[in-house]
Write a protein that binds this DNA or RNA. Structure first.
Lengths: 396, 396
DNA sequence: ACAGTTTCCCGTAAATGC
DNA sequence: TGCATTTACGGGAAACTG
């Protein structure tokens, strides 16, 4: 009987991490007023019990509530669910909750994105006259009230799951442990590989390691504190390492996903290394790099050119922001970018994507065909390159 | 006694039009899930009654509910209010309601932006053993569920109040009356003058009249149907006159308010008249005009130039959209706009704002000072004019 | 005063209803 | 099926609150 009880207890698990459907890549972060889904399951392994359990569980009730930590939450919508059989699995049950509404009760001791909460599920099983109370819970979740808290909330989830297997250590952030660079590197690369077709290369990771830890021969084994990762501003900057990186991840996903997937974006490269690899290249060779100074995520290109004296120069353009990429794609910006050369002629300084891919080959397919102005007047030159908008003769 | 009763009845009025605080310019339109405020007042004129009424009314209760028409609404939050004295007035009472939540009950016979609803207020007055029931109501309101319904909802409010003084004709739109151009013109000009520092000129109104009514010598007295104003698409366009105009009003308020207030935007002018007034002007003379083809509101400029043969040409640029004006102000676009001339030199075709205001004088003060790139390399020409972004030497 | 946090609500997109 | 209407929720801004 005790064996059975223990078997059942270990079989009642919160299967999926609670998740907002619009943020499948960022489970365990929940926003007040936004729907989320969560699920518990009974993993029954004895075929001979199946039918019996099926019957019994048809009307079992699972209660779900928020508890722990310094706040209390109300759930709008039902917080009890009848366990239903899943066709594909033994005794699986799902409970879907909508409209979590937070009711802040006690002041928190930690900042809100470091407060961890558990969603607890309870049920009762009756078997051969025996009543068994079962309880299980989700991994710790972070509850936010505005999406602008998502980056820090997600950082908390990453740090927790990177450094502990403990299922319910809600006080983790009262004294968060350090991580090694090897652990952090894996997590950072995963942030890209899980949402795009490409993770981070060794070169990219080394650039990031240098940002976090300063110059060093071998970063393996170096320790990174939670504060360094997410809480302290970077030297001379008004934002933390993670906030900077997360805005770049957002930029990549929303504006330059195709180029990133192709591997056209070197992205993370120090200015020194950039100069070193570009200098020996022919003029017109360029690479794409993320802005280091913009909190909001920006991308720029850097190219080689020869000045009037024939000396090699490395040039770059002021980074493009999400705002600018809203009205023109980055591929189109690259293809259309022109500067005035020494003889006052407009030329494109971008010819070969590093190491030697012709610009048209790499970016041509990501440009819309040029708009054909409905004109009765000859096109007055490359007006569209200059203004972004096409000139035509009074027809609008 | 009957005199007193009638006096009281006429003194109990819904003073202000219900309004969403974020839309003070558009009262009588209410969005589900968005707070609105509304107020009733007792206009008591007898000084000798004041004190008595003060006492009596301190605990009067005003009930507020939605009714009429084909729907029913619930109010989240209290729908009863104790009448409180206002210091500055006799017996004034305010009731503030939050979070109107619509519960669609019966299917509507009209489209939602033409359904008119009344907010009804009730109270009871006891005076010298006499009980008097008082009732009053707001003007008809339109209830919307998404802000994208605001233009049509506001058009309904305008048409109703332009054409009737009836306080509660909720069936107005089952057979909406026609308006005259004179009435419509006044309302249209008021849409600008009430939210900016400038209404519409006779010339601008005449252009609008022509859009609504076609070419005509004198529009005064011409009739405009509700359908023409707001329901039918304009000839060859996928949107109604009002939707087009309301998007322009929005463009003006959010993106080019200062230029509008200065009177720099001619805005509404036919292509024929534009050609007629620009042709005799020196090359480089330009004017600013709203897009006629864009539903979302766009603005363009048209200028005079001489072609290679010395013939006068009228040119214009593809209209700028709100999207584009997000990343650069229109004044900056005008100041920075350049095209390639016949000899392959970049020049600005914009010199004098019609009739003869130098461009710099009109728009210079609305441009941010040019960003100073942190450069150690000479500026490679007017790179910033070409790309919008500034070139510098690898410093980012 | 002020910084962390929540609320408000537009505007786009998706879902729903009819 | 297509169109009208509502719901969902990110994101910027304002309001709140200790």
């Amino acid at each position: 009987v005790d064996l059975f009880r223990n078997l059942m207890k270990s079989a009642f698990v919160a299967e999926r991490q609670p998740c907002m459907p619009m943020h499948p890549d960022r489970p365990l972060v929940i926003k007040t007023g936004v729907q989320f889904t969560t699920k518990v399951r009974l993993l029954v392994k004895f075929p001979e019990l199946n039918y019996q359990l099926k019957i019994k569980f048809l009307h079992c009730i699972v209660l779900c509530f928020f508890s722990f930590s310094s706040r209390k939450f109300n759930i709008l919508g039902t917080n009890t669910k009848v366990m239903n059989m899943e066709e594909s699995n033994n005794g699986s049950l799902s409970a879907e909750f909508k409209h979590l509404v937070s009711s802040a009760v006690t002041p928190a001791s930690l900042i809100v994105t470091e407060e961890l909460h558990l969603i607890t599920f309870e049920t009762e099983v009756y078997h051969q006259g025996l009543k068994i109370d079962l309880e299980t819970h989700s991994l710790p979740v972070v509850v936010i009230s505005n999406i602008c808290q998502m980056p820090n909330a997600w950082a908390s989830i990453l740090w927790y799951n990177m450094l502990t297997n403990h299922p319910k250590n809600v006080n983790f952030f009262t004294n968060p442990p350090v991580g090694t660079w090897d652990q952090v590197a894996e997590v950072l690369s995963w942030q890209f590989s899980s949402t795009t077709k490409r993770g981070l290369t060794i070169e990219q990771l080394t650039t990031l390691a240098e940002k976090l830890l300063g110059p060093c021969v071998n970063y393996s084994g170096c320790q990174i504190t939670w504060a360094k990762f997410c809480k302290e501003n970077m030297a001379g900057k008004g934002f933390s390492f993670w906030v900077w990186l997360d805005n770049i991840i957002d930029l990549v996903k929303k504006y330059i996903l195709a180029l990133w997937n192709e591997g056209y974006i070197m992205g993370f490269i120090s200015k020194e290394r950039e100069r070193a690899i570009l200098s020996p290249k022919p003029p017109g060779t360029f690479l794409l790099r993320f802005s280091e100074s913009s909190k909001e995520g920006g991308i720029t290109f850097t190219w080689v050119e020869k000045d009037i004296n024939g000396k090699t120069q490395i040039q770059s353009v002021e980074p493009y922001t999400k705002q600018q990429l809203n009205s023109m794609s980055f591929a189109e910006i690259i293809m259309g970018y022109k500067i005035m050369d020494a003889t006052n002629i407009l030329v494109s300084p971008l010819v070969y994507l590093y190491p030697d891919i012709p610009k048209e080959e790499a970016f041509g397919k990501y440009c819309r065909p040029e708009a054909q102005p409905d004109t009765e007047f000859p096109d007055p030159g490359c007006g569209e390159c200059v203004s972004g908008n096409i000139v035509h003769s009074g027809l609008e």
